[in-house]
């Protein structure tokens, strides 16, 4: 089978040995950790004015991509934060599996 997107993610995170259902669950759970870790670190870094605007955004039905874009633009080092959290995830899974 040619590698598809999901499979390549599975390969990237080195969880191919798990049953398919577990792969999905792992990715799902880990993604939740990344999300929460990222937000916990990033949101407090919003400058005051941006935080006010951010609060307003949260009250609306604005899309997720817009919120993330907003955080990217307003939180210094946002990408690095996400990168670190993802890297941690990768490392954890590799260590746990090795």
């Amino acid at each position: 089978m040619e590698p598809n997107f999901l499979q390549q993610l599975v390969t990237k995170f080195d969880i191919a040995d798990y049953p398919v259902e577990e792969q999905h669950k792992i990715l799902d759970e880990m993604s939740q950790i990344i999300m929460e870790s990222t937000l916990t670190r990033a949101v407090p870094l919003l400058p005051v004015e941006a935080a006010v605007e951010y609060d307003k955004m949260l009250e609306t039905d604005v899309g997720i991509s817009e919120i993330f874009t907003f955080l990217q633009l307003n939180v210094p080092g946002f990408d690095e934060i996400v990168s670190e959290e993802v890297a941690t995830l990768e490392k954890m899974l590799k260590i746990a599996k090795s």
């Binding site: 993604s31 990344i34 990222t38 993330f68 990217q72």
Partner: peptide, 11 residues
Amino acid sequence: SAFLYSLLLTG
């Protein structure tokens, strides 16, 4: 989808 977008969020 959290995993996917988290994954895609970094350069």
